[in-house]
Computed example of a mutant assay.
Amino acid sequence: MSRTRGMPGFVATAVVAAGICWWALRGVDLAGLGDALRTADPTAVVLAVTGYTAAFYALDTTGLALVYRRHLAPEVPVAHVVAISCGKQLLGVLFAPLTKVVAPVYFQRRWQVPVLSTLGASEVLTVADFTVLVGVIAVSAVAGGLPAAAVSVGVGLGAALVSFLAWMWLPVGRRVLPRLRDSRFLTVFTRTGPAEMAVQVALRLGVVAAMMLSWWLLAAAFGLSLSPGQLVQFCAVLLLVTQLPVSIGGYGGPQGVCVVLLADTWQLVSHAEAAALSLVWSTGYLVARLVISTPFAVRLVPLLRAAPHYRRV
């Protein structure tokens, strides 16, 4: 978890994100960009960004509370989970992987839960995310119009996901790498059955639904009408990009997706309008996270410094 180990990844991500932004904004003059920004309805923009941010925080916190209280520490107060889930997003504004550090520190110091156990518990939500991502890509591929590269990646992710779940849940999988199954990192997965995972998938579907509604409102704020098929395809690619280390502070990936799909592929808007739409999303989402996360981050600091809580035997 040292800073020196994370620095190369941060630098590489920053370089990639800057390169995408440069590519997305190339040839766009400031006057054209300003004109595109002025066409947006500010009320719809605020509603789209804050609505999605609030929905994401609420659903993400619910999923983490279910996992943490079920598998790590049943006594952990929900208020602490809220502070962890919402407060850590302030670190995510800088570099998304930093959000992975907060919960392990809290549970190790406060509840004596091994770090790998907490990391494994948090990754249950990641598996649910990939399940939803594969499903959205599959729906988009069937509807047609999804880029071939995204379909190929979706097929690969789907095969990996099915293999992993089969290894975790099917009797035949128990004979493959049994020591790995019993590791601290994967113990939570072995105790998370299909029914519990289905609840997590439903919560992540709620996040995706909120994202789709948010982008529909945001596009409407710019006078752009996306068909249901285009909206699903757009969010499928955006979800795929969010899993990649190509954004810093929310800038990078969204700019590339908006320009490639909205301007170059579908030709619904000009290059400048696609860039403006992406910048409004990234900036609005950044501001919303800063505003919402800061009070929780202040509450989180003393929780990370608190004395251990010893459970009764």
Results as ranks from 00 to 15, higher is better:
W281I: 00
V246Y: 05
V15L: 13
V291M: 10
L25Q: 03
S225N: 09
G284R: 03
D35G: 00
Q89E: 14
H71N: 00
T62Q: 04
C258A: 14
G158T: 09
R70I: 00
R69H: 03
V113Q: 09
A40I: 08
C258T: 02
A236M: 08
A148Q: 15
Q243V: 01
A236T: 04
Q267K: 14
F95A: 08
W22M: 01
R3E: 07
V28C: 03
P308W: 05
L205W: 14
Q112K: 02
G193V: 00
L217F: 07
M168V: 08
A274R: 06
V127F: 12
V298G: 12
F130T: 00
V291S: 11
M168S: 10
L277E: 03
S122M: 12
G223A: 04
F107H: 03
R174V: 10
R311A: 10
T62S: 04
L217D: 07
F107A: 01
L90F: 14
R191E: 13
A148R: 15
Q233L: 13
A263V: 02
C21P: 01
G158P: 09
L64I: 02
R3Q: 09
G156R: 12
P295L: 10
A14H: 08
M212L: 05
V102A: 10
V134I: 05
I248R: 01
L90N: 11
V45R: 13
P178A: 09
S293T: 14
I292Y: 13
L203M: 09
L239K: 12
A73T: 03
A55Q: 06
T118C: 08
A236K: 09
A96L: 15
R109F: 07
L279C: 06
G223I: 02
F296R: 14
Q200N: 07
A160L: 13
G284Q: 06
V132G: 06
V134E: 06
L304M: 15
T126D: 06
T13Y: 10
V82Y: 13
R69S: 06
L177E: 07
L226H: 10
G284S: 04
T242N: 14
R5H: 12
W22T: 01
M211W: 06
K100E: 08
L59Q: 05
A275M: 03
F10C: 09
L98G: 11
C235S: 13
G256E: 08
V188T: 10
A198H: 08
V15N: 02
L303C: 12
C235K: 07
L161S: 02
G135M: 06
E273Q: 15
G120S: 08
A83C: 13
L66A: 01
F164A: 11
D29H: 00
D129K: 15
Q108K: 15
S2H: 14
